[in-house]
Amino acid sequence: MDLSDAYANGPHIAQAGTYPPRWAEAAACYRKALSLKGRLRSGLPYGRGPRERFDLFLPDGPPEGLVVFVHGGYWMAFGREDWSHLAGGAVARGWAVALPSYDLCPDIGLSGITRQIAAAVTAAAAEVAGPIRLAGHSAGGHLVARMLAPGMLPDPVAARIAHVMPISPLSDLRPLMQTGMNEKLRLDAVEAWAESPVAMAPPECPVTVWVGADERPAFLDQARWLSEAWHCDAVIDPGRHHFDVIDGLADPDSAMTRHLLA
């Protein structure tokens, strides 16, 4: 059974093609504004590769703590510069926000990307004291959920994780083996299950799964599976689809930002 359409978002969202350039424009404007204020530390390394870098956006004053946002794109697209504006909500509320890039499939496998994000979170944690909150969208939702696996983060960093918000996450990767994307993802049954958050023991850290009510049924299923497996809260955001469900992160007064930082 081919599940390619079930996991395709763009063909089922009106004017889908306008979203990436709008994200890039908003991100560039936000980066420029924070840079002019001396509150952007760009391209900090967490590894040796050219994409093993993160940007750190700083609030006006000592940070309340650290938020790390991990972008989506099915592990195959985008980089940290495309999403800078999503730091806006938490930064306005006094938090530092780190946005990492990572290597993309097929140049790397998913387990390798997971290790990269663990290194990025660890490096960002060394830059900012206080509690850490993780948020990620789609593939990024998968990656922040994976940070809660035992031993994934160093114990001192793991102890600082105060809240994790997988947004429209991919939580069981086995269905992706039945999509055309697997030509690049190169998942087999062993890695798909090993990298699936639903296969992990429920974490002790507070978790909120967030998903748009107007998303594809496959993503509603993926969110529900994680919420059920981890016995954690789930928010179904009315009127939101896969591309605009993340908009709240840019707004300091949105329900999403307030919930992430609560």
Rank of each mutant, 00 (worst) to 15 (best):
G43R: 09
L36Y: 11
D82I: 12
G94C: 04
V97P: 00
Y74K: 05
R51Y: 07
L86V: 03
R48T: 13
F54P: 09
H71R: 08
E52R: 12
D60F: 04
F57E: 01
S35C: 09
C29M: 13
L44D: 05
V68P: 03
G88W: 04
M76C: 15
Y30F: 15
F69S: 05
V70M: 14
S84G: 08
C29H: 13
E52F: 05
G73E: 10
V67Q: 03
G73Y: 07
G47I: 06
L56P: 09
G38N: 05
L58P: 00
L99P: 12
D55C: 12
L58M: 04
H85C: 12
A28W: 15
A90R: 03
P62K: 04
R48C: 13
W95D: 03
M76R: 15
E52C: 11
A27Y: 02
A87M: 03
W83Q: 12
G61P: 08
D82M: 11
R31A: 07
F57K: 01
V91W: 02
R31D: 07
L86S: 05
E64Y: 06
V68R: 02
R31S: 05
A90G: 02
S35K: 05
A77Y: 01
R41D: 14
V91L: 04
S42L: 14
A28I: 15
V68Q: 03
C29R: 14
Y30I: 09
F78I: 06
Y30H: 14
V68W: 04
G43S: 07
F57Q: 02
R93H: 04
W95Y: 11
E81V: 10
R31V: 10
A28D: 15
V97D: 00
A77R: 10
G73D: 05
P59S: 07
G65R: 01
D82L: 14
A77W: 02
A90Y: 06
F57G: 01
A87R: 06
P45I: 08
D60R: 02
Y46V: 06
L58H: 00
K32P: 13
A28V: 15
D60L: 10
S42Y: 10
V67F: 06
L58K: 09
G94N: 03
A90F: 01
Y30Q: 10
F57P: 00
P62G: 08
P63K: 13
